[in-house]
Simulated assay, not measured.
Amino acid sequence: MENNYFDSKILEEILNIPSPTGYTKDMLNYIQKELDNMNLEYKISNKGSLLVTIKGKDSNKSITFSSHIDTLGAIVAKVKSNSCLSINQIGGYMMNSVEGENVIIHTRNGKKYEGTLQTIKPSIHIDGNDAKDLKRDCKNYEIVIDEQVSEPQDVYNLEIEVGNLVSFDTRTRITKSGFIKSRYLDDKASVAAILHVIRYIT
């Protein structure tokens, strides 16, 4: 719940920055700007970890806080003949938990396109029991791109291709009573909490 000690606005901003594994640059930039605003020095490791050290009274004793900024997501596995996209999962999640979800496709040149993840038989009205009984495996899902595309070449012309990363709508919402509902509270709530602690002690 919200209280006087934690700024949920920061958490809301963090939650709404797409950062599936392999595409964390925007999230990393956000944290760097926050640290810059606090005039703190930091470094980026060879593997992309951000490290900040805050000196205390006794350098012989130390406490380490850590959290991860990457989230679950997907990767484009194939541009299909119907101009939709097959995907593979990034991370372990049940496919029915993202069925019908809005997504963003992140191209290599920085463009972003919206779409919707649905099953290959999304309508009971059309497909009857085949739609209901369809196994919720990744292979039975596809992304419908929110662009005028009717054949694979139209998709390639947008510079969407195999290997592009896909992020899911986080559905972030803060209720009037102060409860926070969102995907990826693990581990972005920890990121927000650590930033809050840093502000408090510096």
Rank of each mutant, 00 (worst) to 15 (best):
P152N: 10
F168K: 04
K188A: 04
A192L: 03
R183H: 09
R171I: 02
L158K: 11
S182Y: 02
A192Q: 04
Q153L: 12
T172I: 02
I180C: 08
V191E: 04
N140D: 13
N157R: 09
F168E: 01
D187I: 13
H196D: 15
D169A: 08
F168H: 01
K188R: 15
L165G: 01
V197K: 06
V162H: 00
N140P: 09
K135H: 12
L158F: 11
R183A: 07
F168L: 05
N157K: 12
A189I: 11
E159V: 12
F168R: 02
A192M: 07
H196R: 15
H196N: 15
I198Y: 06
L185C: 10
C138M: 06
K176L: 09
V166F: 05
R171Y: 14
V191N: 07
E159R: 11
E151F: 13
V155M: 08
I174R: 10
F179K: 15
G163L: 05
V191P: 01
P152F: 06
A193L: 10
Q148K: 13
K176S: 13
D186T: 12
N164D: 15
S190Y: 08
V197A: 13
S167M: 03
R173H: 13
V197D: 00
H196F: 01
I180Y: 03
N140F: 03
S167P: 04
G178F: 08
N164L: 06
D137I: 04
C138A: 14
E159L: 14
I143N: 06
Q153K: 15
C138Q: 11
V166H: 01
H196Q: 15
V162G: 02
P152K: 11
V191R: 05
R183L: 10
C138F: 05
T170S: 11
Y141L: 07
N164S: 10
K139M: 08
F179M: 12
A193W: 04
L165T: 01
V197C: 04
I160P: 01
A193H: 03
S150N: 15
L195A: 07
E161D: 15
I180A: 01
D186N: 14
C138L: 10
A192S: 08
S182K: 05
E161V: 09
D187A: 09
T172F: 01
V166M: 00
S167L: 05
E151N: 15
I143E: 07
F168I: 04
S150T: 14
D146E: 07
A193T: 12
P152C: 02
C138P: 00
K176P: 08
E142H: 14
E142W: 07
T170K: 10
D154H: 12
S150I: 09
L195Q: 06
F168M: 06
D137F: 13
V155A: 10
I160E: 01
L158T: 05
N140Q: 11
T170H: 02
L165N: 00
E142K: 14
D137R: 06
I145P: 02
D169Q: 12
T172Q: 06
S182A: 12
V166P: 01
F179S: 12
D186Y: 10
I160R: 02
A193E: 06
R136M: 11
L158D: 12
D154L: 05
L195S: 05
G178S: 09
I143V: 11
R171P: 00
E142F: 12
S167C: 08
L195K: 04
C138H: 03
D154E: 11
K135N: 11
I180H: 03
Y156H: 13
Y141W: 09
N140S: 09
V191T: 13
E147T: 01
E142V: 02
F168N: 03
L195M: 12
